[in-house]
């Protein structure tokens, strides 16, 4: 899928909500973190929401950078490697108590496992299986609406 700006944002929000939500729901109970399960779920879903909200800003930057590419495409590798800057920013904000709604401190190990697995799942689905239920999606720059 070669994205448009609207398509980037819609795809991110949809996949983080659906795929990210499923991965988070399944993963949270086994993450290496102490505390009641309710608090743990609150923490992981707040982090997921932070990735989605901050992601809108990131998508604006990616869209701008893409303009220098003749093909106006976004290679598969870029979609994977952008987990590094995005992960660092969310981690910095979360560990400095700058993300509202977190019930307590965010352990780095648990954060890394959660963030990387959600990212990989979303990236894999966006690069293939997403086309199966939504036959218009790839021809509309990733727009679902």
């Amino acid at each position: 899928m070669v994205p448009t700006l609207a398509g980037r944002i819609q795809t991110r929000l949809f996949l983080l909500a659906v795929i990210g939500g499923l991965v988070t729901a399944a993963l949270t109970p086994i993450l290496p973190v102490d505390g009641p399960l309710g608090d743990r779920y609150q923490a992981t879903f707040v982090v997921l929401a932070a990735v989605a909200v901050l992601g809108i800003g990131w998508e604006l930057i990616y869209h701008f950078l893409m303009q220098w590419r003749w093909e106006k495409d976004w290679p598969t590798l870029f979609g994977l490697l952008t987990l590094v800057p995005e992960g660092i920013v969310v981690w910095l904000l979360a560990t400095r108590d700058l993300v509202p709604g977190l019930p307590g401190p965010v352990p780095t190990e648990a954060f890394t496992i959660h963030f990387v697995l959600v990212w990989l799942a979303v990236w894999l689905v966006a690069n293939g299986p997403m086309r199966v239920p939504f036959i218009h999606w790839r021809f509309r720059g990733g727009r679902l609406l």
């Binding site: 700006l5 106006k72 720059g141």
Partner: peptide
């Protein structure tokens, strides 16, 4: 260009 098939050039 790749965006002709679904990206911003197509739009």
């Amino acid at each position: 260009p790749k965006s002709a098939w679904g990206g911003q050039l197509k739009a």
